[in-house]
């Protein structure tokens, strides 16, 4: 029916629709998709139940002291490496936009070098530093044997944290650039020094842009810490390996480790939501305005 027919018929009865029955739109595609997914899922469950997995092992080792200790070390390394990464990231990003040519060249060089080499390789470099520098320190003042300092923990923290810093600095930089130049001027006009302006005005606003990618990076770091197993840091994967070397239940222990990774990542995702909400204060969210 088109506009002309409405006008010409002048039939009022046509416009009364309250008594008609409403038939909701059918989502056939959705129903089919759901059926397919359920089918595949059922097949997967069947495969795992008939496969040679001893689920009792999974259950027994889930809370084994070695596994729980490994989980603790994984979390500890995540916090340590990520803290180092964020601190370096902020410092490098501020150096990069400082307008001081020396500082910004250093920042560019840092990102170039530490983003260019695989994290695993960097970690191994730190761990094996003793091969080229048997001792470290200031001659005459103090001196250490490098192998005493470059423990698996320290090497992993440096390797993971420093390479993370290269990535995080780009996130921080894009956050800083996202803040309107009027904010910088307003902060200066009330007499703030450069550092105070960054701390009180610019970074809190940049946070809104930085939190989602940094959240991703934290989650990535939880899993990246598994690289430290290569240099004998006893994080969860390393400890799972120690157990399955003894009892040969390889897949069961890998499942135990996967469970814990998934568990930690789930909790972090929820935490990220609340942090985003905090730094989004004062800014109308796109979602709520729709």
């Amino acid at each position: 029916m088109n506009a002309t027919t409405i006008r010409t018929t002048g039939d009022i009865g046509k416009y009364e629709i309250a008594h008609l029955t409403l038939v909701p739109k059918r989502h056939i595609g959705r129903t089919v998709a759901a059926a397919v997914v359920l089918l595949l899922f059922a097949a997967l469950v069947r495969a795992f139940s008939v496969g040679q997995i001893e689920w009792s092992y999974v259950r027994d080792f889930l809370f084994a002291p070695t596994i729980i200790a490994g989980l603790g070390n994984t979390l500890l390394m995540t916090v340590a490496a990520m803290t180092l990464g964020i601190v370096l990231g902020v410092v490098i990003a501020i150096m990069r936009i400082s307008g001081n040519p020396v500082l910004s060249s250093i920042a560019v060089g840092y990102v170039w070098v530490f983003r260019g080499a695989p994290a695993l390789l960097q970690l191994m470099l730190w761990f094996n530093l003793a091969l080229i520098f048997p001792t470290m320190g200031i001659p005459g003042l103090f001196e250490f044997r490098t192998v005493d300092i470059m423990t698996p923990f320290v090497s992993a923290m440096l390797g993971l944290g420093i390479s993370q810093g290269a990535y995080t600095s780009e996130v921080v930089r894009s956050g800083l650039l996202s803040v309107d130049s009027g904010q910088y001027e307003a902060a200066r006009s009330i007499g703030m020094t450069h550092m105070k302006m960054l701390r009180r005005i610019v970074l809190p606003q940049a946070m809104r842009v930085m939190i989602p990618p940094i959240g991703n990076e934290v989650i990535g770091m939880v899993k990246l810490t598994s690289l430290a197993s290569v240099i004998q840091y006893s994080e969860i994967l390393h400890n799972a390996q120690i157990i399955y070397f003894a009892n040969t239940r390889v897949l069961e222990l890998l499942l135990v480790a996967s469970f814990w990774y998934l568990f930690v990542v789930s909790i972090l995702s929820v935490g990220q939501h609340y942090i985003e909400r905090y730094f989004g204060r004062g800014i109308k969210s796109i979602r709520s305005s729709v």
Partner: peptide, 21 residues
């Protein structure tokens, strides 16, 4: 920054700090 403290400035586009009341 010390000299600026004694000079107030009001901008065309307000430039209030959006994360503060």
């Amino acid at each position: 920054s010390q000299q600026r403290r004694r000079i107030g400035m009001v901008f065309q586009r307000f430039n209030l700090f959006p994360h503060m009341t």
